[in-house]
Computed example of a mutant assay.
Amino acid sequence: MRNAEATRERILEAALAEFSAYGIAGARVDRIAKTAGCNKNLIYIYFESKEKLFTTTLQKHLMRVYEELVFTPEDLSGYAERVFDFTMSNPDLMRLMTWSSLEQRAESPAERYEVHGKKTQALQKAQSDGKVGASFSPGFLLTAIMTLATAWTATNPFGPSLHPEAADNPAELKDAIARAVRLIAQGDTLSGK
């Protein structure tokens, strides 16, 4: 059983590299099999289809994100800093997520919606408790935080192209993102409204 699980993990790691480079349409199961050191048919036995392999690969890595990046509505700037560090250190996953959005053939794992729902609920409670400004809806606030924290990943069309020199000093960039998130999270409390 250990050997089967090890083979399955090698397939998922090879799939991450292949799908992040080529997307679903451009990925080749034979290349994944060769990289994983297994028979191509074994991939279909484990995962049924290329699309299912893509979804399983995405889900595996998103679950890792959810476990490693604890959401803290009382410290949104700290959360943004952790997201920034993670995404800058995991460009393959960011490309995989981009391909998922572009091709929209692979279903997003249900856990993704569930996790985001829990985050927006936590933000709504933090707003009700006066810990986070209520100028923006929880969904908008979460989207703004994630957008800022991931703006300089290689797959983002704006950060790297419009302000490429910012990535030369990641500590300064991360600090600027954290400050922006603090300002957004405070909302109208800054203007006294």
Rank of each mutant, 00 (worst) to 15 (best):
Asn3Glu: 11
Ala4Tyr: 01
Ala6Asp: 12
Glu9Pro: 01
Ile11Gln: 05
Ala15Arg: 02
Leu16His: 05
Glu18Ile: 02
Ser20Met: 06
Ala21Arg: 13
Arg28Ile: 03
Asp30Lys: 13
Ala33Asp: 04
Gly37Pro: 07
Gly37Gln: 07
Cys38Met: 08
Cys38Trp: 07
Asn39Lys: 11
Ile43Met: 07
Leu53Lys: 05
Thr56Glu: 12
Met63Asp: 11
Val65Leu: 07
Phe71Thr: 04
Glu74Gly: 07
Leu76His: 04
Ser77Leu: 03
Gly78Thr: 06
Tyr79Val: 00
Ala80Thr: 02
Ala80Met: 01
Arg82Gln: 12
Asn90Phe: 05
Asp92Lys: 11
Asp92Glu: 13
Met97Ala: 09
Thr98Cys: 07
Thr98Val: 03
Ala106Val: 14
Glu107Arg: 00
Ser108Cys: 01
Ala110Glu: 10
Glu111Ser: 00
Glu111Leu: 01
Tyr113Asn: 07
Tyr113Asp: 08
Glu114His: 12
Glu114Gln: 14
His116Phe: 14
His116Met: 13
Gly117Ile: 14
Ala122Gly: 12
Leu123Glu: 05
Phe136Cys: 09
Ser137Thr: 15
Pro138Gly: 11
Phe140Asn: 08
Leu142Glu: 04
Leu142Asp: 10
Thr143Val: 02
Ala144His: 02
Thr147Pro: 00
Thr155Glu: 13
Thr155Ala: 09
Phe158Met: 13
Phe158Cys: 08
Gly159Leu: 12
Pro160Lys: 12
Ser161Trp: 10
His163Lys: 12
Glu165Gly: 07
Glu165Leu: 15
Asn169Thr: 14
Pro170Leu: 11
Ala171Val: 14
Asp175Gln: 15
Ala176Phe: 09
Ala176Arg: 14
Ile177Leu: 09
Ala178Cys: 10
Ala178Pro: 07
Arg179Glu: 14
Ala180Phe: 10
Ala180Pro: 10
Arg182Met: 13
Gly192Trp: 09
